Amino acid sequence: MQKVNKKIKVLTIINSLNLGGIEKTMLSGLNYIEDSQIEMLYCCFSKGGALEEEYRSKGAKILYIKKTGLILLDFLQLLAIIFKNNIDLVHSRFAFTSGGFVLASKALRRKMIVSIHSTSPTSFRKFKKYLFIYRLLQLQLKVHRYLTLRYADKIIGHSTANLNAFLEKWKDDERFILLYNGIDFENLERQPKEDSNLADFVKNSHFVFLHIGSFRLPKNHFFLLKVFKSLLQDFPNSKLILVGDGELLEKAISLSKDLGIAKWVKFVGNDNEIRKYFTYSDLFIFPSLYEGFGNVVLEAQYFGIPVIASKIPALMESSFIDYQKYFFDPTDENEAAQNIKKILNDLKSHQLEDTIKKAKKHTEENFAVENMMQELSNIYIKSINENQPQL
């Protein structure tokens, strides 16, 4: 890694420090940069994230900023934070709404990096039914995108799918970088492997299915519950474990009761120690409508759990290729159920043993968090050493 004259202060802007894939990746990454030339600070829209105390225990400084949705106010807020904390480089995790942050960084001649974690700005989709508001938001997104493309020093895509969605010809622009998320395998190994409550729940089960993810529309929990109900006809007394929390949790619990499957479904809420859930599971199901990458798919493969998921571009990058023949349209319940039956039959007949081993090896060799953080650190230092573009 190239040397710099002083420790670089990097400010990462993120929504909150909750139990999301990138939040966990960044937390693990602190173990690999704490003794380097980089000091990490985090700027969040909301307080009280489930991982905040763990970040602080590793020496991270956490700041807060109001979520305004307005370019000018974002500009003014970040301007003050950069000036007060003497920030050298800003790394925004908001690919589609970083316009104000980019301008603030450039106004103070600081380096600016923007990460792309999804294929579209998911928070805006709920406004589609309000046509006028939606069109105004679309116009604002175009301004954000223009400012990012005009002034960002680097733009990191955490999957090829994300980069393709953001800019079709991204390969022609040397500022664009593909950097896959990494998994902290050592941390996973330190987690508890067994749990008596889970053991009691899955006892004498036909099959145990697992999903880990926040209860938001993109994760497609309602679809999963309906598919699970149909699977119970062929695999009675199977169980479904759902790990996560979110705005749709109560509706999902209510739906499980309406479908008459509540006693076969376990809602466990947020839990950062996920190893035990893989211990008791036979199949990981991930029916997302859209994803940026899917870190949890890598975690399932690492623990030797077969994966079946949506047939969407991002999950084709995180999943092992031999599983992809089972993938399904996340809007087609019948196709999902049929393909799950196929992979279960192959699992029962021991046809997946070689695939499971290869998937684990592929994950270990290509998605270690220490390799990701080494590359990200190099990007930070290289950016600092490059000439500053002018406004």
Rank of each mutant, 00 (worst) to 15 (best):
K7E: 14
V10W: 03
L11G: 09
T12A: 03
T12M: 05
N15T: 13
S16A: 13
G20P: 05
I22W: 02
T25G: 00
T25V: 15
M26V: 14
I33H: 10
I33V: 15
S36M: 11
M40V: 04
M40K: 13
Y42M: 07
C44A: 08
G49C: 09
L51C: 09
E53P: 02
Y55R: 04
K58A: 02
I62W: 06
T68E: 14
G69N: 11
I71R: 08
L72C: 03
F75C: 07
A80R: 13
F83E: 09
N85K: 09
D88K: 05
D88A: 06
D88L: 08
V90R: 09
H91K: 04
H91F: 04
T97L: 05
S98L: 02
G100A: 12
V102D: 05
M112I: 14
I113M: 08
V114L: 07
S115G: 13
S115I: 04
P121W: 09
S123K: 11
S123N: 13
K128M: 12
K128T: 06
K129S: 13
L131R: 14
L136P: 01
L137R: 08
L139Q: 01
L139W: 05
L141V: 09
H144G: 12
R145Q: 15
Y146V: 01
T148L: 09
T148Y: 02
R150L: 15
A152V: 03
S159Y: 14
N164F: 00
F166P: 13
E168Y: 07
W170G: 13
E174N: 14
L178H: 07
D184M: 06
R190V: 00
P192F: 01
E194K: 14
D195P: 00
I212N: 00
L217D: 11
P218E: 15
K219I: 09
L225H: 04
K226F: 02
K226D: 07
L231K: 04
L231P: 01
L240C: 02
V243C: 11
G244R: 01
L249P: 04
E250M: 02
E250V: 01
K251C: 00
L255Q: 02
D258V: 08
D258H: 06
D258M: 10
A262V: 00
K263D: 11
V265R: 00
V265K: 01
I274A: 01
R275Q: 11
R275M: 06
T279S: 12
Y280M: 01
S281P: 03
D282F: 01
L283Y: 10
F284D: 04
I285C: 09
F286G: 04
G292T: 08
G294C: 03
V297G: 10
L298I: 06
A300E: 13
Q301M: 15
G304T: 05
M316I: 05
S319L: 01
F320P: 10
D322G: 07
Y323V: 09
Y326V: 04
F328R: 05
F328V: 08
P330W: 03
A336L: 14
A337W: 02
A337L: 05
Q338K: 15
Q338I: 12
K342F: 10
K342E: 12
I343F: 07
I343C: 05
L347M: 13
H350N: 15
Q351I: 04
D354W: 00
T355L: 08
K357G: 08
K358W: 03
K360N: 10
K360Y: 02
F367L: 07
M372W: 12
E375V: 06
I384K: 01
I384L: 12
